[in-house]
Write a protein that binds this DNA or RNA. Structure first.
Lengths: 233, 233
DNA sequence: TGTGATGTAAACGTCGTACTTAATCTGGGA
DNA sequence: TCCCAGATTAAGTACGACGTTTACATCACA
């Protein structure tokens, strides 16, 4: 599911990253490059490149004479899509899912408001299309198909906002929605109210009603948070 | 100012990252590792590690036989603090500053609202302290000192929100405020209205008034956006 | 006995070379 | 004209050597 890239590098990176984010190496614990090289049966060159990437994510810190030490959670680059995926696959998924959903609840309403002002006709069409797709797949245990439309919908909104930082959260939202559908006990069918709200957001954006688009999206976010409260401990 | 790390690696990474984000290498253009190694007078090993990091930021893509190609802007990991710093130092600073300020305007009000609910007494004290510091340095061309308090203030709010994703935006906000102060033509003294608002936010958080904290922070954000409209083209 | 200077070794940092792999180009043949 | 095989090229991988930093222990001195 995860290892999209080929090459030794990817395998080691994914395994180590997953292990670290899962807390297998507690904060401050030390990993030595030789050890890792031996454990994965790769050269130290490969390990060093992996370490450099983990270092760039602020997951670890490499210091001479002491080794590669795991940094405290608060310093991790939690916006890196890979870190997000690792953490959603790991043990503290509920906490992570909640953090991300709160972030969405802050960002997406504003993005929807901007989208209502800036969306191109093509984007409006795409939005309506995805909303209809959600309606069509909202019954009969077709969660997988629904998920595709849901992700596409939110991606279009974020892109249509015209703000680059919002647009780049598309991947984050995709990970959240995917994680929610796959990993969590979810209802058999999505909440009908949420489906309706999506259709209405598409409407509001098409009509250029920024306030309404923002408010409706806020309702979607509130719904998502409440759903999380019900389904997560 | 930038090169905090030591070692050859950092120098090459910073230089290349800056060049790429500045658009010196247009999208799709190719860089060869041997070339870079020669240009910086380092071994290919060092260059490869740099490339791996740039690849992890989605700035470039490395493929056999073809070389290291620069990816389109839309795919960059723009939440990486280093990418942000590079771009703020580069040519499209105005656009970047605007994107980031819009992001702040979405996130910080919600964070302030949460902070009003969750802030510890220590955090409330820190908030008040920083707000007073802002007042004390708001006159007499003491922008540098003001900046320190401003950054600290917003960092405390984001941390006090209790949401990890918000907390990690502290660095982003710091970069934005620093970039705004250093790179941009700024008024000699900060806007008095903004200073007052910060004091009031500290009050609202202390009193646990979430709605007021949120609304006041929203006003700060609106002010920042308007200031940007005035000072940036 | 306590404290500071000194030495040592452990780990990462850098380098050069050699080999492997795969994408692209080229040219010959059907 | 089209297609396939081999040559070419640049990154991927591996290995071994040496350099550099620095935590830690040891020892000398007060």
């Amino acid at each position: 599911m995860t290892t999209e890239g080929r090459g030794l590098h990817t395998r080691v990176l994914d395994t180590l990253g997953l292990a670290i984010t899962a807390g297998e190496y507690p904060q401050g614990s030390v990993v030595r490059t030789d050890e890792v090289a031996q454990r994965f049966d790769v050269s130290r060159t490969v390990v060093r490149e992996v370490v450099r990437v983990l270092e760039s994510m602020h997951l670890v810190e490499s210091r001479r004479r002491v080794g590669v030490t795991v940094r405290p959670t608060e310093e991790w680059n939690v916006y890196d899509p890979r870190v997000i995926r690792w953490r959603l696959a790991g043990s503290d998924r509920p906490r992570q899912l909640r953090s991300l959903t709160v972030l969405r609840s802050a960002v997406e309403p504003v993005a929807a408001g901007l989208a209502a002002r800036h969306a191109t006709p093509e984007q409006c069409a795409a939005l309506t299309e995805q909303a209809l797709g959600m309606v069509a797949t909202s019954r009969g245990r077709r969660l997988e198909e629904y998920l595709v439309h849901d992700i596409a919908f939110h991606r279009v909104v974020l892109n249509a906002s015209g703000n680059e930082m919002f647009a780049r959260l598309g991947d984050v939202v995709a990970e959240v929605l995917t994680g929610r559908t796959h990993h969590q006990v979810m209802f058999d069918d999505p909440d009908p109210a949420a489906v309706t709200l999506h259709v209405q957001v598409a409407e509001a954006v098409r009509e250029g009603d920024a306030d309404r688009a923002e408010e409706l999206t806020r309702e979607i976010a509130v719904g998502a948070l409440e759903e999380l409260d019900v389904l997560a401990p």
